[in-house]
Design a protein around this nucleic acid. Structure first.
Length: 153
DNA sequence: GCCAACGTTGGC
DNA sequence: GCCAACGTTGGC
């Protein structure tokens, strides 16, 4: 079982939205490196839900991969902002996963807290200009995050 | 195949 | 709102 981190702008889709929907296809990723990570994900893997581009950014909750290797339907929809005219149903270019809500953390872990806890080597997300929206986490980092997110003050 | 222009991400 | 980082596009 592997741990991941997946980013979303809460204005577009937040942990509360996922809590309401229970399950959702994680569509709209249009970066090859992020897609390659999505292809590596297996059902049962856990991922941290990171809120980006908000005040403050941070880790808001946990989700589980409920279905692996899902073809992103938005690539075929000319009305979608994620439409890709170079993709075809015979040879789809963009795969993703379906995720299910696990929990919203009692403790939101803000970006400044993340910086105080981890180095840029442990958590590349902290690097300036780092833009990948899907990334793997080491077991070590994941377990520290879980302990902190659930710890009672 | 190079690289300038352009667009997007996302912290601040 | 600014702007650094960086991926993509397209002319040559």
């Amino acid at each position: 079982m592997r741990y991941w981190l997946m980013k979303s702008e809460p204005g577009a889709y937040s942990i509360d939205d996922l809590a309401r929907d229970k399950r959702e296809v994680w569509d709209g990723v249009r970066n090859y490196q992020a897609r390659n990570y999505l292809r590596e994900m297996r059902a049962g893997d856990l991922a941290f839900f990171y809120h980006s581009n908000c005040k403050p950014p941070g880790v808001a909750g946990l989700l589980r991969i409920s279905k692996e290797n899902v073809v992103d339907p938005t690539q075929f929809d000319p009305e979608s902002r994620y439409f890709d005219p170079k993709s075809s149903r015979e040879k789809p270019r963009w795969q993703t996963v379906e995720v299910e809500f696990v929990e919203k953390f009692p403790n939101y872990i803000s970006l400044p807290q993340l910086r105080s806890l981890f180095s840029e080597e442990e958590l590349p997300l902290l690097k300036r200009g780092y833009r990948l929206s899907v990334l793997p986490l080491s077991d070590d980092v994941a377990k520290k995050l879980l302990a902190l997110a659930k710890k009672e003050e």
